[in-house]
Design a protein around this nucleic acid. Sequence first.
RNA 1: GGGCGGGUAGCUCAAUUGGCAGAGCAACGGCCUUACACGCCGUAGGUCACAGGUUCAAGCCCUGUCCCGCCUACCA
Length: 725
Amino acid sequence: MRTAFVKLYDKGLIYRDNYIINWCPRCQTAVSDLEVEHQEEAGHFYHIRYPIQGTDEALIIATTRPETMLGDTAVAVHPEDERYQHLIGKTAVLPIVGRELPIIGDEYVDREFGTGALKVTPCHDPNDFEIGIRHRLAQVYAMNKDGTMSEATGKFRGMERMACREALVEELKERGFLIRIEEHSHSVGRHERCGTVIEPFVSQQWFMRMKPLAENAIEAAKKGEVKFIPEREEKRFYEWMHNIRDWCLSRQIWWGHRIPVWYCQDCDEVIVPLEDPSECPRCGSARLERDPDVLDTWFSSGLWPFSTMGWPDEAPLLKTFYPTSVLVTGWDILFFWVSRMIMLGIECMDEVPFRTVYLHPLVADEKGQKMSKSRGNTVDPIMSMEKYGTDGFRFALIWLVSPTIFMPLPEDRISKGREFANKIWNVARLVRMNLEGFDRDALRPLDFNLADRWIRSRYHRVIQEITQGLEEFRFSEVAQTLYDFIWHEFCDWYAELNKLRWSEEEGAIGRYTAQYVASEMLEGSLRLLHPIMPFITEELWQHLPHEGESIVIASWPEVDENLIDPEAESAMQLIMDVIDAIRSSLGELGIPANRDVHILIQSSDPAQRAVLEAHLPIYIRAFMRNAQVKIAETISAPKEAASAVVGNVEISIPLIGLIDIDAERQRLTKKLNKAIQDLERTDRMLQNPAFLERAKPEVVEQRKNQKEELTNEVEKLKRYVRMLE
RNA sequence: GGGCGGGUAGCUCAAUUGGCAGAGCAACGGCCUUACACGCCGUAGGUCACAGGUUCAAGCCCUGUCCCGCCUACCA
């Protein structure tokens, strides 16, 4: 901090000045522009008559803050305003107080607004302050630092500013100076910490000259040295940088870094040294007093990327980690912190502190409202973590994050995060229970079955998706992909199918392969999940076959293209579709899955039949223990049966005496109607010559295949429905 | 005043480069199938705010309108 301050002071970028700043009368400190929150509030427009000396004329002036008139030192009109031009150079008399106010012409005045005449209060309004400088106007404080009226306000002195407003308006009314009061909605600035209305106030403070720093920051961003995600944040960054104003650094509060400036009590020398001085370098006096104020905390925060790593020394840490890769933070402190880190980083290190700034949304409450202490709708993350676990909470956060401004974090999602953790815990238990006697390094022969090939293929695709998703900052999709893969593919299908092999005897090749693949998939999934759920993944990983000491430093899974197996994927897809169709039919008819059933499967496609014959009779038993499957080119299905059609595959489950024919017919009719609708839509497309001509060939191809499939399905369903009539 | 984001299932939110709208919760029906009831299986639920336009094709692109939110600004 000290080095940075001195460096910037020596370069003339930090200076001390008597200037108008934002003052909080309650906290009794200066605050920066960023710490003032503006809001439209209902107020009044007071029209007040200012008599012109030596004439019968008067200027009507409209103001929202009548109490500030006690600090007026001029009245301004537009120099080209024909109504008032002739008054320029004359003198107005401040009502009640009687102070003489020069009438000046200034282009700042908006002829259209209010009455077109402006009272000028240099000490309590930023614009008036500027006008005051331009016209060398006197400065009269109407208020003290605590928000009470000053000595200069005569009988109002000591009154609180709002109370004074009332009393003053009352008196103006009585003495005939108040013309009228209008309802007026205007923007009011309040201190973000305490909600007190900010008082613009002239006082001596330390400032940082921002223009040159901002120019460098803009240039760095333009050159792509630092990127913002989402992109719109870059625009916001430029917008702010282009309109930047000098930064008031001084704070009159008790905490923070004290400003490293000493003032010689004898010769008024201002001393800004690296080491605490004992005497004045100019006059040698030992009577030095340090500036009592402290720095805005964002000053030292802005130095964080390098001051934490040994700067200004040439520390090894600094060499390694400056600049770093990504800064992750909320968009609300883009100006407060991020921008200042960039500006001060360039200034002190000659380089931006990070390459990418990822700005995430702010967590809103359940109703989507911004959380704020004053609104009392804050949610304590620690409480959530205690209730749902840190990993579950983290998963929910990542799962829900999107490029919006606010994200609600509904409790049911956090709860689902915990349930996901629980699911993983349990599937790991299942795998471990069956890992007894397993030695991955035994290098015994393996015999991958369809499910093995499928899950490994899916796993390697998932690695690809996750890796890319993380690189592109699409965190929510990453979480969703992991959720679907682990829960629905690994647990719901693979783990269930694997159970069939776990009853095989110790040492059997099937059992060994199942152990090998299950542990491999789980171990790899944990590594993919680790950035989101660090604790549970480490714990489970330690109990699975793995390489390395800790998952924290384990290598990131790599895609093995050879294991991506489209053939296994489509074969498995067929199996899953058929099983789904069977389950769905029985489910809709209320037939429990453990009933003895015969499942008759018919397909005219020999390749399809081969896949089904090879796997379905075995795999179906993972889900329906007592099912018997028969697969043939043609089957003769009985009337009393549950039926389903999956593309080319017909499924019939005889349920003599168990089935309500009417219900089954209705069920199939519904499916038929849906299929007919789909077919018609597809057909319409394919009959449109413009579609055939202009659409991408692969899309046309896809539609053609779809038509064929749907035609098949419709025809088959029709037959079943007819049979049931 | 300027700028930005959003309006999609009952609720909270997704949807890469335009190519048949998804998830979680809630709802409904069935399961204590020895990893998990924080679970399993199944079902239902959408005029993608509104009006035009571009396109073979629009939640997505363009124009306008209506709501909601945010950032920013020295109209007293």
